[in-house]
Design a protein around this nucleic acid. Structure first.
Lengths: 226, 226, 226, 226
DNA sequence: GCCTAACCGAGACGGTACGTCCGGTCTTTTT
DNA sequence: AAAAAGACCGGACGTACCGTCTCGGTTAGGC
């Protein structure tokens, strides 16, 4: 939604190509410095992580980015849009989806995914997300952006690991991988965002052993089975 | 933080708490009318559900409760504290913890728990929670209050139903009931609060059959088992 | 206007004598302690002199008089009425109207009226008056009360001294004593209340010699004289 | 006292006052629109004349001037300071000091000064002054501002007329013009502000004939003369 | 001597204005 | 024309005060 990523998010003057037979399609004047986008969004993320959405003021973000307010509003139409853009920025720095761990067992893979460097990154992301929790309720696309940036990639990794385990016969093919792969990411998001409890290894182990692996080993249970 | 009156301490716990050998036994002046607390908090919950936290103004709550702003600030030191109190109030109106459904099977019980009246109530609660999502990140006790008010009672009901199923032999005693009972409530909260997707019957069924029942039937999986 | 001076200023229940053939004209219950009136009004005058009308709060007056707010409002219907009563109280402590100075000359008499003890009293009165200047504009009877309490008695004294001078032939009978006797008090009030300049002996002398005595010696000037 | 902006110094004197060797020559950002000052103060004077100081609210003044409250507080640190500025504005719209009436006699001149249009203006000014009488007691500079705006110019006019009369021999040179010229303005201010009585022609005539002209015709009376 | 009603100090209550802060827009100067 | 700086309008926040009402306790009468 009006991201700054060069997709034509300009909001004060339309694309120069729309006017029919326009004499000069070239845009005059100083070009907008899109390298400022990243600096501003980083400043926004910092402030968001520090003070939360409510405590984040436009003036503070502008001051931290050494930018004027008008520069911000030229890029995003509101505080919410700006935060939306900032969240979108987090998507890029993502777990390497192709180089997943391979320990030989699903349990080992799931635990291996939980590494210190991933943890630090996850903690920062959760801080940011916690900061903007308020917006989710009032802003349409944000929930999807959050899911795309944080939870979905994680679930995708889980799904890949589980599918590999099913392929090698470690778990039955009847297992409902699509649903089970969402367990840890969803519960972790709930735990981190709502409960604000630490997402540590003990928690991870108890859920892997208590829910995920049992559910996968048994296979899906349909209405007919009971 | 404290009010303008010298006392300044009775902000969140209105009771005198003169436990043993209280210094000042007599409290002079007009007593604070604690029946106003409930009326004000109900008004706050209404406004919260209607407009969200950002749209909720103190003047609006005061006007709806036919109270003065000073009356609100005498009880809670800020808008946020008031909302905290309002959430705490939701704990009371809880699902009947003793008269749970009994259909004969765990699957039937879990589905029976999901009834229209419970749904309406849950929808209202979720609206309220969605409205105050912003505060969770910045306010210490709110996460616990939310959990106590919404998720924990639900998990408790699930735990009771599962324990009953284990008692009658429907599921093995090795099942990790404590953890599995949190699956649906946690994921539902994530779905409702973060993803803002409907919490409907289809979703419920897929998680009961895809995760909850399989996990219970297999029993807990320890490190040794793999 | 509803002074506390025992004139039946009670405002919550009318005089017992008005209802025709009333069964019990007697007033039951504890009698109002009218000795508190004076203490409260003195406290009010103190606060008025110290902080002015705007800075004077009911709570402050009540606290200083060690009284409750209700005790004040039982006696006067508003802050303004109370101040009105306080001003009325100043009337009592008045210059001795019968024992005026007698130095032999009008000039000496006028100067003799201006004595240190009178000065201190006048300074305090002016402070009070300055404090309640605001009320005069919005409250009907106050201007008259102020005049009665401060300026009129002073002008009366001047008039008496001037009349005595006319009687003994020091000034012509044609002198417009009624008007001239108001010069010093009026100008002093203007100087003290509006200009907030000191009302000292130099000022007094310049007005006695520059205006009052010349005006009296020449006698009144009618239209016909020019 | 100072505004929220770091500067905090330009509250009452908007000019940069970069007299000699100013440290920061360039003033960045949007310039303060000083044409708003006049509009705001005019609105303040209107409200002041209509409702008095107590009834005048910042929101009302801001609304009438179509300004935000912050714009007002950026210019004046408080309601009182703003009123102070408004009074200062009245100084400008002054009686024509050079084109005084010339009827041939002092008495005629003094009466001629009292014309309908002057009266209307005086009535408006008195209304304003009455409205802010409260502030005089608590605000340092206001007394002088009031005097400068209202009384002093009037006394100046009287002094000029009297000096002209002395020059043409109508009154003796020994007359204490400096003092006598203050009689009517001072007494009128007292009458209008404190007594709240009408300042009409009858009153004027009685003071001209009873005090002013007699005092002038007799000449000053020193201590030695009695 | 006891009952009843009005008194008293203390302070909670509804309402309203104050002065501050922030979101989003507009203006001035510089680049 | 875009950038930094900051003034602008509108509106919510939290505080203070006015005048009312309520609380527990005290002080007069009338019986």
């Amino acid at each position: 939604m009006a991201g700054p990523d060069g997709t034509g998010s300009d909001m004060l003057h339309a694309e120069p190509t729309d006017s029919a037979g326009s004499a000069q399609p070239v845009r005059l004047g100083r070009k907008r410095d899109h390298s400022r986008d990243a600096q501003i969004l980083d400043a926004a993320l910092e402030v968001l992580a520090e003070t939360g959405y409510a405590g984040m003021t436009i003036d503070l973000v502008a001051a931290r980015a050494k930018a004027g307010k008008a520069t911000l509003y030229r890029r995003w139409s509101s505080k919410e849009e700006m935060v939306l853009g900032a969240v979108g920025r987090m998507k890029r720095s993502q777990v390497p989806l192709d180089q997943l761990p391979d320990t030989g067992t699903l349990r080992g893979d799931l635990l291996a995914l939980f590494k210190p460097q991933s943890l630090d990154e996850a903690v920062y992301k959760m801080k940011v997300l916690a900061g903007l929790a308020s917006m989710i309720s009032t802003h349409a696309g944000l929930d999807e952006a959050v899911d795309d940036a944080i939870v979905a990639p994680w679930a995708d990794a889980h799904r890949a690991l589980m599918q590999r385990a099913a392929d090698r016969g470690e778990i039955p093919n009847s297992a409902n991988i699509d649903t089970v792969s969402q367990v840890i990411p969803s519960v972790a998001a709930y735990r981190a965002l709502i409960r604000r409890k630490p997402f540590d290894r003990d928690f991870l182990v108890s859920w892997i052993d208590g829910v995920v692996l049992p559910a996968l080993h048994h296979g899906s249970t349909g209405t007919s089975s009971l």
